[in-house]
Design a protein around this nucleic acid. Structure first.
Lengths: 212, 212
DNA sequence: ATAAACATTAACCAAACGGTTAAACTGAAA
DNA sequence: TTTCAGTTTAACCGTTTGGTTAATGTTTAT
């Protein structure tokens, strides 16, 4: 089930904490439970991460690194292969969904971070992306801007469009469990996800592409 | 600042709890602090709401009632006035944004509810909408379905489109504070919100309307 | 072989926490 | 004037919690 080979104690704690926080939330998480889940002494948690906040921050950077590394790689590959603007946007939406879908429970941790104020996330992102490289988001924004210049896309607001894409992705994993109650009968989760991805791409593409 | 006239103690507690939970989150909220914020004895909190979970649930229904009452009213008025499909959808997006904007901190409470599992929200909604009346969401879904039938809208997935609209709205209020860090310089919050609303309506409309 | 650095543990602690209790206050009906 | 239900309070309690400590085991460089 868990693909990670937990060699070091530090890593064990990190994995355990991610598990618990995803289930109980940041403030609902007890350090004792993290230790129990990791199968080690609680003092170890404080040995490697000096307190709950620092542990949470470390988790944030871990998550961001994991989440964006592959999708960033795939997006920049698409770009270097000279794929067209529509393809780049469509694909990057798909990559984002696939990335979240690999670890759907990361969403909750990110929400906890968002709710905690505006310091942590920028700091965590700073730690993940060294100044030289761009985030997947800025790649997409650049592609949209370029598409508008080349009259491929309508004159949409690039940043707001990016925010919209993020929202459409986020809401799915955030409300996964309760979506079933709103007129949804989900027999096959994979099929439902696939429909969701198609629907988002369809909406974004039709919303952005220049009419002629 | 607070428009509510806190007559009864029960209401004082409710308002105080909403304030604290919006700031500290569900599990980060301490009953002592709720009492302190309300300016009354802690035992009163347990007198009116027997425990933290029940207090939270009561808050949820309060929020849902407040949030949706006016936008529901405005949507159904638009419908009864015979406004066209595009207008109904555009307006309901605007109403939703305005409704959230009145109480932006409600978002966090809703996210806490979403994260807490799949029981509370449906139960709270059940308490708000008696079986006879429809939710704003289902009004919109119905309008989309009807618009597709009448060949006004493209053959989009109505429920997924509704989820997308929700996501685009939600993400704005959820990440309000940190959005500033993503290439955004916000001088005027009201202007930024107005742009956001326009951008979402523009995207949805262009994404849905039939091309000819 | 040894010392220093690192890793791990059980036991401990003060503070915080959710929740209770028993007694007292209030206002209105009988 | 009594009564009774609803309201409010200070004080209290057992448990949980974040965090510490001091002692011990383990590795590593000299």
């Amino acid at each position: 089930m868990n693909r990670h080979i937990d060699t070091s104690s530090r890593d064990k704690i990190l994995r355990a904490a991610i598990k618990v926080i995803a289930r109980k939330g940041r403030h609902g998480t007890r350090m004792d439970e993290v230790a129990r889940e990791a199968g080690i002494n609680k003092a170890m948690v404080y040995y490697y991460f000096s307190n709950k906040d620092k542990l949470f921050f470390e988790i944030l950077t871990t998550i961001f690194t994991e989440m964006y590394r592959d999708s960033l790689h795939r997006i920049s590959e698409d770009i270097s292969q000279g794929k067209n603007h529509a393809e780049i946007i469509s694909n990057s939406i798909r990559y984002s969904f696939e990335s979240y879908n690999k670890n759907p429970h990361y969403t909750r941790i990110m929400v906890d971070a968002i709710s905690s104020g505006m310091d942590e996330i920028p700091k965590a992102l700073e730690a993940v992306y060294n100044s030289s490289q761009l985030s997947p988001a800025s790649y997409i924004i650049k592609t949209i801007e370029d598409g508008i210049d080349k009259k491929i896309f309508r004159d949409v607001d690039p940043v707001n469009t990016m925010i919209s894409i993020t929202g459409m992705t986020f809401i799915y994993f955030l409300s996964r469990n309760i979506i079933k109650f709103f007129g949804m009968k989900i027999e096959d989760e994979d099929e439902f996800l696939d429909n969701r991805i198609k629907s988002v791409i369809d909406l974004i593409m039709n919303g952005m592409l220049m009419r002629h």
